[in-house]
């Protein structure tokens, strides 16, 4: 068993809002080994992004958020670090690739400067050296004519190139963990494939562990080694990608997979969907959060199932 790069244990995130406390992430635990790609899958509001933001306490500055639990990077606890110590971790050891390359780049600065900025935030290298390194990184993420393109402003680049720039920024300091929050959602399908290939190559070259946050199961199939499915703030199922795609055990996972149109299946009149709405994350009901929408719910589901052996369900496999 290889040593874990990242260990998350009992992560719990609550936001205080005017409408009451939102319990966004509930007892989430997972780990990442070196070079592993773990996909965190779930619908909007299931707590994926809140989990990602909590890893380096990015949501701590917002006064209304309370995060508890443990996040260990190479065995070092991050939750108790000061803001100053965290600054050295962010970007250098745990880096993020954001969802929207249109808005995640400072519009008034040249992309080369943006990358150099990340380097200089951690490493007091001379301006020139940082600029040279930025060009190398642009080359590394597959941007042609990197020297010329480093001089460009974000609006002069296409969406795919901007996403490459974001990845170059994230990789500038060779982080151990790359958190990619919906890295392909804002891109065309063809560009998506390029970006996924790029992440795969970089992972192989540098042994970077990747926490991939997505609701796109196609992306999961193409990139992830392992999948953790989140529902209402909890991980309800976790398994190797091939296993979960072939034989989902949790009824929610099964429902998710059924709701994807597939090119090799006969086209039915209607795409199946999961009836009902996900629960509001305010009140913590004692039973299974998915029970109200579950086809196989029964009496036992009034008690909350615990995650054991990669699944949190009283009736794994369900009854058809």
């Amino acid at each position: 068993m290889p040593e874990n790069v990242l260990d998350v244990h009992d992560l719990d995130v609550r936001f205080a809002t005017e409408a009451g406390t939102i319990h966004a992430v509930r007892d989430v635990s997972f780990s990442l080994t070196r070079g592993e790609v773990l996909a965190l899958v779930g619908e909007s509001g299931s707590g994926k992004s809140a989990t990602a933001m909590s890893l380096t306490a990015l949501n701590r500055a917002a006064g209304n958020t309370r995060v508890t639990g443990s996040v260990r990077l190479h065995g070092r606890e991050l939750m108790t670090l000061s803001e100053r110590e965290l600054r050295d971790v962010r970007g250098a050891q745990v880096a993020m690739v954001f969802q929207d390359p249109m808005t995640s780049l400072n519009p008034v600065r040249r992309v080369g400067d943006l990358i150099a900025e990340v380097i200089r935030a951690h490493d007091p290298v001379p301006r020139r050296a940082a600029a040279r390194r930025a060009v190398e990184l642009l080359h590394e993420v597959g941007i042609a004519e990197p020297g010329r393109r480093a001089e460009l402003f974000p609006h002069q680049l296409s969406g795919g190139m901007r996403q490459r720039v974001l990845i170059a920024m994230a990789l500038a300091l060779r982080p151990a963990v790359l958190v990619a929050d919906e890295p392909t959602t804002a891109l065309d399908v063809t560009i998506q494939a390029q970006i996924l290939r790029l992440i795969r190559v970089l992972r192989a070259e540098h042994g970077t562990s990747v926490l991939l946050i997505t609701h796109d199961l196609g992306v999961v199939a193409g990139l992830a080694d392992r999948v953790a499915v989140m529902y209402a703030g909890r991980i309800v199922e976790t398994a190797p990608t091939s296993a979960i795609l072939a034989s989902p055990r949790h009824p929610y996972t099964a429902g998710l997979l059924e709701s994807i149109p597939r090119i090799d299946h006969p086209r039915s009149a209607r795409l199946p969907s999961i009836a009902g709405q996900p629960p509001t994350l305010q009140d913590d009901d004692p039973g299974c959060s998915f029970a109200p929408r579950c086809r196989s719910a029964h009496e036992a589901c009034a008690r909350r199932p615990v995650l054991s052996d990669g699944i949190a369900c009283h009736l794994p496999g369900g009854r058809r």
Binding site: L58, F98, S104, L105, N106, L166, M169
Partner: peptide, 12 residues
């Protein structure tokens, strides 16, 4: 978002 991104990259 780019401000958030800068902070996530370790900007003080």
């Amino acid at each position: 978002e780019f401000v958030e991104a800068a902070i996530a990259h370790g900007a003080g």
